[in-house]
């Protein structure tokens, strides 16, 4: 997993609540058996004017000029600003894969779908929860100031306007923070407890043998 320490980048606003993982990456693109290559189909149904199917040359497809990520001022954005319940719905990890593949490193929203939230951490995409008022203010800032950038410092747990005018603090579980800062392999971490897992399993097998075999 790619580490996350400090990141500064252009902010793109996606001003809708309840953006579900079907919208982030539609099901027809889940047929891939790889983890990469989902970026061109991120928000496919909103981004293009035609119906997307796997195997198309996405560079030749007609873009929807109204969709925010197609607007020149947001080209190269690496921080997505979103509304409540971003990433609700299906468990598909293809959603964070697509966001990362497109170039995003962080998503800021007042709340997230829980499975998406988990999946994001496993891939080095940082989901940041800010208060609704703070997110609202950021939407205003992005609209008001072309080229609006934010700087995220994971260690200090802060989001700051690039000019330093505004600093917001966010919460994160210490363990998740540690994994992101170090880019550690969680499976490797868990396997350090292999003896405890075996002991737990032996007890369970004795008490509830019908769960085994």
């Amino acid at each position: 997993m790619e580490k996350f320490t400090v990141h500064t980048g252009l902010v793109a606003p996606l001003d809708r609540a309840n953006v579900d993982t079907d919208a982030i990456i539609p099901k027809q693109f889940l047929k891939s058996i790889k983890r990469s290559g989902f970026g061109p189909n991120l928000f496919d149904a909103w981004r293009y004017r035609d119906a997307g199917v796997p195997g198309m040359d996405n560079a030749k497809r007609p873009l929807n000029p109204d969709f925010v990520l197609n607007q020149a001022r947001f080209r190269g954005a690496t921080i997505l600003l979103a509304r409540t319940n971003f990433g609700c719905g299906s468990s598909r990890e293809h959603a964070p894969w697509a966001l990362l593949d497109f170039g995003f490193r962080a998503v800021i929203a007042p709340s997230f779908g829980e499975i998406f939230f988990n999946n994001a951490f496993k891939n080095g995409l940082l989901p940041i929860v800010l208060a609704e008022g703070e997110v609202d203010a950021l939407f205003h800032d992005v609209a008001a100031f072309p080229g609006f950038r934010l700087s995220i410092d994971l260690d200090r747990q802060t989001v700051a306007a690039a000019d330093g005018a505004k600093i917001m603090r966010f919460e994160i579980d210490p363990f998740r923070k540690y994994c992101l800062l170090t880019g550690l392999d969680e499976i490797g971490l868990t396997l350090r407890h292999a003896d405890e897992i075996r002991a737990f399993e032996a007890r369970r097998r004795a008490e509830q043998p019908w769960l085994f075999g």
């Binding site: 983890r35 468990s91 598909r92 990890e93 964070p96 499975i115 988990n118 999946n119 496993k122 891939n123 969680e186 499976i187 868990t190």
Partner: peptide, 9 residues
């Protein structure tokens, strides 16, 4: 429900 990284885990 879990994601694919968790499936692997």
């Amino acid at each position: 429900g879990i994601g694919t990284s968790e499936v692997e885990h």
